Amino acid sequence: MLELLPPLNDHNLPWMDTIHPIVVHFVIAMGLITFVFDLIGVVTRRPALFEVSFWNLLFATAAIFVAIMFGQIEAGLANPYGASRDILNLHSTIGWSLAGVLSLMSGWRYVIRSKDPHQLPLAFLGAGGLLSALIVLQVTLGNQLIWVYGLHTVPVVQAMRSGLV
Rank of each mutant, 00 (worst) to 15 (best):
I22S: 01
I73F: 10
R45W: 06
G95Y: 14
N89M: 00
L13N: 11
L134G: 04
A78G: 12
F59R: 01
D116P: 13
V24N: 04
S97D: 13
W96C: 02
F59H: 02
D86N: 03
L2K: 11
F59N: 02
Q119M: 02
V36Y: 08
R45K: 10
T93F: 13
H91S: 08
P7S: 08
P14F: 07
L98C: 09
P14T: 06
H152W: 00
V148Y: 13
L98N: 13
I22E: 04
L58Y: 07
D116K: 07
L5A: 12
D116R: 11
W108M: 05
G128C: 10
L125P: 07
W96D: 05
R113Q: 09
H118M: 03
A67N: 06
R161D: 14
L151F: 14
I64E: 07
S53P: 12
D86R: 08
A62Q: 06
A133M: 14
E3K: 06
T44A: 07
G82K: 05
A29D: 06
L122A: 15
Q119L: 01
E74D: 04
L130Q: 01
L145S: 03
L98M: 14
W96Y: 09
T18Y: 09
N79E: 14
Y149M: 04
M1Q: 12
A75F: 11
I64M: 02
H152P: 02
S132D: 07
M30Q: 01
N79K: 03
V24T: 05
Q119D: 00
R85V: 09
I135L: 02
S97Q: 15
A67W: 09
L88P: 12
Q72V: 15
H25N: 09
I22K: 04
P155V: 08
L151G: 15
V101H: 04
F70H: 04
G126Q: 08
S132I: 10
I40T: 03
A48K: 11
A133N: 09
N56V: 00
L164V: 15
A60D: 01
H25Y: 04
V23G: 00
T44S: 06
I28V: 15
S53V: 08
W147N: 08
V156D: 10
V66D: 11
P121D: 01
G126S: 11
I94E: 15
I73N: 02
P6D: 11
P7A: 04
L122R: 14
N9E: 05
I68L: 10
G71M: 06
P14M: 00
L120D: 12
S162D: 15
G107A: 05
V42R: 06
L125V: 06
L90T: 11
V52I: 13
F37M: 08
S103Q: 03
F54Q: 00
Q158W: 07
R45F: 03
A83D: 07
G129N: 12
H25R: 10
M16N: 15
A133G: 14
A133L: 13
S106D: 01
F37H: 05
Q72L: 15
L57H: 00
S97V: 15
V24H: 01
L32F: 07
A63S: 14
T153E: 10
T44M: 10
H152S: 02
L57D: 00
N12A: 13
Q72Y: 11
D38F: 10
L125Q: 09
V165Y: 03
V139T: 12
L98T: 13
A99V: 03
L141E: 12
G150N: 07
D10M: 09
A48R: 11
N143Y: 01
I135V: 08
L151R: 14
G129D: 09
